[in-house]
Design a protein around this nucleic acid. Structure first.
Length: 681
DNA sequence: GGAACTTTCAATTAC
DNA sequence: TGAAAGTTCC
């Protein structure tokens, strides 16, 4: 089994004497090490599958790992052990699992709701009573940062030095109270609350420590303080875990992730063993040289040098374009020519970018040219309005204290319940400290509003009551189909949209129902006792799950469009890195913040590094001289990261020296800058 | 109360 | 360019 591995890989898999940190460079076979180690633990080291948990950051990574473990275990000829009961989960779904089991200890009912960030945004807006988006975003961000750092409202207040911070801490406190009243948690709570739980209830901690004997943590460099705390508590004094990470690929600092956690590990666990994986099995020497050259401009946490035996490879192409449109055109032209010439498939190509909006131009052109593509990153299926509409009913049925769900369900589709009624209901509910749903049934409240309004409201509430009874009794699929029928959702879609848009939305709803139903029939996701989930139990998973899960039709042959963040962990034969300009990569906000805090620029550089290291055989980098930004045309300069590439490995297209158009746009001094920049490296 | 229209503003990254 | 908020009218 361990034959085709190199020696550090083999060592990492076999090492069981204590805590282990695997520093795995890009493309060094890190997922393979984790999956093979799971197999080793089960088949050779006497662990039961149900005692092992592998924790990842994304559903995609969890799914891939699950598939690879299944394949590995099935491939064993002398298979006696099984991977049944193995936990492969994201931090968030593991947290949900724990919270669900122990909810009552924290004063929650097991059917608590999970709010998405737009729900929590609205709550913050309510508390602050403002529409100032900038302020709201900052507040929401600050609250999230506190949670990720495991700081509760009281601590936040105590440590606040500025007036504004103190005020925000108060909002944080009110926000938490609101969530509790709604019997709801946000994404950050899914990590933070289990840690609180384990701090307060040793018996719960002991239970989970006994259950999860061995932990494997993927993408360790992306853990935040809270997640690290959770890992430390779960592994306890035993310290039986394998953390796998790469400080050069830490790109989630803005989400509270702290690369320091890597260093912290060496301090917290004196017996920590460190193994480096430095052989790259993915990219050509040129691509690797480019990656190493760029990342060399960052200070290092651990010394590490990637090498490859895959040959020198093609030159890296850098092209300057006139506009986003011409960039898209040139990329797709190059792509199609390359595909024709090399007889490759569409799925060998990826177009990677910094921000989601950059995909738009490409999508349009891809559609025009009838090139198949898939788009990842960006908003998930579950953020689509039509899905959230349906889910709001489910959330309300599962948890009638969920006011945000109440409001959405009560008003979508329109059913005679308007703003005035809802406002009065809200006033009554908050005066009497009850949920909107409960308030609607109050005699005193009903006396306040008109007859027609009261009738419509009661009709809705009684319908929810009916659904509640059915949800625990009837098959999920049946209830769901009846639900969309009785709220006349299909008609609602076609009334409000032109038919093409409505078609796709309705198809999404049906796909969602089909998916959820299948999930309910055969859920192995949360390998716990209650198999055969009913509608209520499925509802909670929805906000964390990915639709693509369990889809049997493998990857379609399509060009991949992806943000750099979402591309981490993936690899492609041929990569187009687009929009590599100052202000985009590095992003303008990071450049501004970078004046005071160089780590902001360093994170952008790691993003560039991640982009480069996705490529196996060829890499195309492009930037635009002009770009439309919020309507206005803007002049752009090539990213500083282009100047950091090794010039011997580059081939320039639309070279600024020879392009009169660029010279004219930039004027002499800027041209000199660029020239110096390019010549320097 | 709610549909239909007009105006305004804005785009990191994501579980 | 597109979504969200504001405004008008039935």
């Amino acid at each position: 089994m361990l034959n085709s591995l190199n020696s550090p890989q083999r060592e990492a898999i076999k090492y069981l004497d204590g805590p282990l940190l695997v520093l795995a460079g890009a493309g060094s076979g890190k997922t393979r090490v984790i999956t093979e180690k799971i197999g080793y633990l089960i088949n050779e080291a006497g662990y039961h599958a149900k005692e092992i948990a592998a924790i990842t950051f994304t559903n995609k990574a969890a799914r891939e790992m699950q598939e690879r473990v299944s394949k590995l275990m099935a491939g064993k000829e002398t298979q006696v052990k099984s991977s049944k009961g193995l936990t492969i989960a994201t931090f968030h779904s593991l947290g949900l699992q724990m919270l669900r089991a122990e909810a009552s200890l924290l004063g929650y009912k097991p059917q608590f709701s999970i709010l998405d960030s737009s729900d929590s945004f609205k709550i913050v807006a309510d508390i602050l009573a403002t529409t100032d988006k900038q302020l709201l975003r900052k507040t929401q961000y600050q609250i999230s940062a506190w949670k990720n750092g495991f700081i509760n409202p009281d601590q936040a207040k105590a440590s606040a030095e500025e007036e504004l911070t103190h005020a925000t801490a108060k909002v944080y406190q009110l926000y938490q109270q609101t969530l509790k009243a709604y019997q709801a948690v946000d994404f950050d709570d899914l990590i933070k609350l289990p840690v609180e739980l384990f701090e307060q209830h040793e018996s719960a901690l002991n239970k989970w420590q006994r259950k999860l004997q061995y932990l494997l943590i993927d993408e360790y460099q992306d853990t935040n303080a809270c997640q690290y705390k959770l890992v430390k508590m779960l592994t306890g004094v035993r310290g039986q875990f394998t953390a796998v990470g790469d400080d050069d690929q830490a790109i989630y600092g803005w989400r509270g992730a702290d690369v320091e956690n890597l260093r912290q590990l060496t301090e917290d666990f004196s017996k920590l063993k460190v193994i480096k994986l430095e052989q790259n099995y993915r990219s050509t020497v040129r691509i690797l040289r480019a990656a190493n050259a760029v990342i060399a401009n960052n200070p290092k946490l651990f010394e590490k040098k990637l090498w490859s035996e895959l040959g020198t490879g093609d030159m890296i192409q850098v092209s300057a374009q006139q506009s986003e449109e011409s960039e898209a055109e040139s990329v797709l032209m190059k792509l199609q020519a390359h595909k024709f010439e090399h007889r490759t498939r569409f799925l060998d190509y990826a177009i990677l970018y910094r921000g989601n909006h950059q995909a738009r131009v490409f999508e349009q052109l891809l559609r025009n040219q009838k090139i198949p593509y898939t788009i990842s990153g960006g908003q998930s299926f579950f953020d689509k309005a039509e899905i959230k509409d349906v889910v709001s009913y489910l959330r309300l049925v599962a948890n009638e204290d969920d006011d945000p769900a109440f409001i959405r369900a009560a008003t979508t589709p329109k059913k005679g319940i308007g703003n005035t009624t809802l406002e009065r209901l809200g006033e009554y509910a908050s005066a009497h400290k009850m949920s909107l749903f409960a308030a609607a049934f109050e005699q005193a409240f009903q006396a306040e509003i008109g007859h027609k309004q009261c009738d419509d409201l009661m009709k809705f509430c009684q319908y929810i009551n009916k659904l509640q009874a059915r949800a625990v009794r009837d098959p999920a699929g049946e209830v769901l189909n009846d639900l969309v029928t009785s709220i006349q959702y299909e008609a609602f879609l076609y009334d409000n949209e032109e038919s093409r848009a409505a078609d796709s939305k309705w198809a999404n709803v049906l796909e969602f129902i089909g998916w959820l139903t299948k999930k309910g029939a055969s859920s192995t996701e949360f390998g716990n006792e209650n198999a055969g989930k009913n509608l209520l139990e499925l509802t909670q998973m929805v906000s964390l799950m990915s639709m693509l899960e369990g889809r049997e039709d493998g990857e379609p042959d399509a060009v991949k469009l992806s943000t750099l963040h979402a591309a981490k962990g993936l690899e492609f034969g041929h990569v187009f890195l687009i929009g590599v300009e100052e202000g985009i990569l590095p992003h303008r906000e990071s450049v501004d913040a970078g004046v005071l805090d160089p780590s902001k620029i360093e994170e952008e550089r790691r993003l560039m590094y991640v982009g480069i290291t996705r490529a196996q055989k060829s890499l195309n980098i492009s930037w635009c001289k002009k770009r439309k930004r919020a309507g206005e045309m803007q002049l752009c300069e090539p990213s500083r990261f282009i100047a950091e590439l090794p010039s011997a490995d580059l081939r320039h297209f639309g070279n600024p020296f020879n392009d009169p158009d660029i010279s004219k746009d930039f004027g002499k001094s800027k041209m000199a800058n660029i020239r110096a920049m390019l010549a320097n490296k």
